[in-house]
């Protein structure tokens, strides 16, 4: 193992760039979390924000799970919890469960046409909606209205192709072949 790495002998700069590249999916995830708090939907006068973080989690869990560990997902969820005023742990829990689910069902959606990939994302979004709605309802002790959650999931699924395209470009251009 070590013998094979010896001739590589990287300079500090290349080491750093390697670290940056390895961290890229996580950084993209964090940017997506922040983006879901930027009022972009209000440009067109809508108030329902897509779950950008879910797109990142789904995409990287399917395409590059080795560069996107469960810790990254947990941190993304925790950041969402801290930035939103909702119950602490709601998104950390939901995202971690979604990540584990996607990871276990990954073989079903790898190397499939994009339409199937998209449909799988819609199903993931619905599962996310159900989990988060259930957890939030239990925490608040009341049945929360379903419509905002449903709108949230539909908007997320509708925007997904754009982000899948962007993530795909980043993956093919920047990340080393895996």
């Amino acid at each position: 193992m070590m013998a094979r790495l010896d001739p590589y002998n990287p300079t500090p700069a290349s080491r750093a760039s390697r670290v940056v590249v390895m961290l890229l999916p996580f950084v993209i995830g964090l940017v997506c979390v922040l983006l879901s708090f930027v009022p972009v939907a209000r440009i067109i006068g809508a108030s329902t924000m897509p779950a950008f973080a879910l797109m990142a989690i789904f995409y990287w869990a399917v395409v590059r799970p080795e560069m996107f560990p469960v810790y990254a997902v947990f941190v993304m969820g925790l950041l969402t919890d801290l930035l939103s005023a909702g119950p602490i742990g709601l998104w950390a829990f939901t995202y971690t469960v979604i990540y584990v689910l996607v990871l276990t069902q990954r073989f079903l959606i790898i190397n499939v046409p994009f339409s199937v990939f998209w449909f799988a994302f819609l199903v993931t979004g619905l599962v996310e909606g159900v989990i988060s709605w259930t957890v939030a309802s239990v925490i608040y002790g009341a049945l929360l209205p379903v419509r905002p959650v449903l709108a949230h999931v539909i908007v997320t699924a509708a925007v997904f192709p754009l982000f899948a395209f962007l993530f795909g470009r980043i993956e093919r251009r920047i990340l080393p072949a895996g």
């Binding site: 879901s36 009022p39 972009v40 924000m49 939103s84 909702g86 998104w91 988060s132 959650v149 949230h152």
Partner: peptide, 15 residues
């Protein structure tokens, strides 16, 4: 200025 959105379907807060 309002600088953030609610960030989820369960809360309606802004920063």
């Amino acid at each position: 200025r309002v600088v953030s959105d609610n960030g989820g379907p369960f809360v309606d807060t802004v920063i």
